[in-house]
């Protein structure tokens, strides 16, 4: 069993530095939280490469996070593809550019809408479930029990979940994109005669690696952020059962916010490298 010194050894009483004591209490709490998160992330990266590897749990979590989220993601993506196409059509029709509809919707879905929508849905579904699950484990002292029984709770609970979200969200995004494009095709088909071959030809003709690769890469960060926030909030849940709800709630809020922040950073980076 590996013990985290930060958690097991009692913190030594130290006098606060002067610059800390002058800070407002809320800001001090915020800095403390940031510090905790950084330590949590560092611990994750330390644990993830060290054996033993909890593969069985990783597969189990991948099933729960990936496979079980597919219906929700697929339905959401289908509706988004359909609605986006139907909403875009009148504007393009006004310019006589209806034939650009597959290309426009395709690029929108692959570059932005698909990854962000799927990530938000997963932030809601997976973030809350991880937050609540880990929160309840924490408050019912199951995590402490695991430590006592010789299992590394961080590796078993946190690492497996974060790995699962990091690798399952991209797959869900790819599937979501595909379903959204099918939804878009149905919407185009409702208003004009177009074959599925022509539709997908138009989509891929206007799509480049510079559209696809950055959008795909950022989904790994979305997955990592969702898993990390859910696990952190659940793992550090306090205040008994009340804290479970709070963990689930703040997991969803922070994970959703992080999705947008990562998206913004990704856009800036791709712009910097001239992909846009």
């Amino acid at each position: 069993m590996e013990n985290n010194p930060a958690e097991t050894t009692p913190a030594k009483k130290q006098s606060e530095p002067i610059w800390v004591s002058v800070l407002p209490e809320e800001f001090r709490d915020f800095l403390n939280e940031v510090g905790e998160i950084v330590r949590f992330v560092m611990r994750f990266f330390r644990e993830v490469f060290m054996p033993p590897y909890e593969l069985k749990e990783i597969f189990h979590q991948s099933y729960e996070i990936g496979y079980r989220s597919l219906p929700l993601v697929a339905l959401t993506a289908f509706i988004i593809g359909l609605v986006l196409t139907l909403q875009s059509r009148p504007t393009l029709a006004r310019f006589g550019a209806e034939s650009w509809l597959p290309a426009m919707v395709g690029i929108s879905i692959i570059r932005e809408i698909g990854p962000v929508i799927v990530a938000l849905v997963c932030a809601g579904k997976i973030g809350s479930s991880i937050g609540a699950e880990l929160g309840s484990m924490k408050v019912t002292e199951q995590i402490d029990a695991m430590e006592v029984s010789g299992t590394n709770p961080f590796k078993y609970i946190v690492v497996s979940r974060i790995i699962s979200t990091t690798f399952m969200i991209p797959i869900l995004v790819i599937m979501g994109d595909a379903v959204a494009l099918i939804g878009s095709f149905i919407a185009v088909k409702l208003t004009s005669a177009i074959s599925i071959t022509l539709f997908f030809n138009q989509v891929f003709e206007s799509t480049d690696f510079s559209d696809f690769i950055p959008a795909f890469v950022k989904t790994f960060f979305f997955g990592f952020a969702i898993g990390l926030v859910g696990c952190y909030k659940g793992y550090n849940s306090k205040k008994g059962t009340e804290g479970v709800g709070e963990s689930a709630n703040s997991s969803v809020v922070i994970a959703s916010l992080l999705v947008f922040i990562i998206d913004l950073i990704a856009v800036q980076i791709t712009q910097f490298f001239g992909y846009l």
Partner: peptide, 27 residues
Amino acid sequence: KNIRLGFFVLTGTALLILALYFIGSNS
């Protein structure tokens, strides 16, 4: 569960490869 997960992952990977192929063949 493992079979379902395998199917899910393989389908996702296949879609990814297909997308890369179509975009790549375009270039």
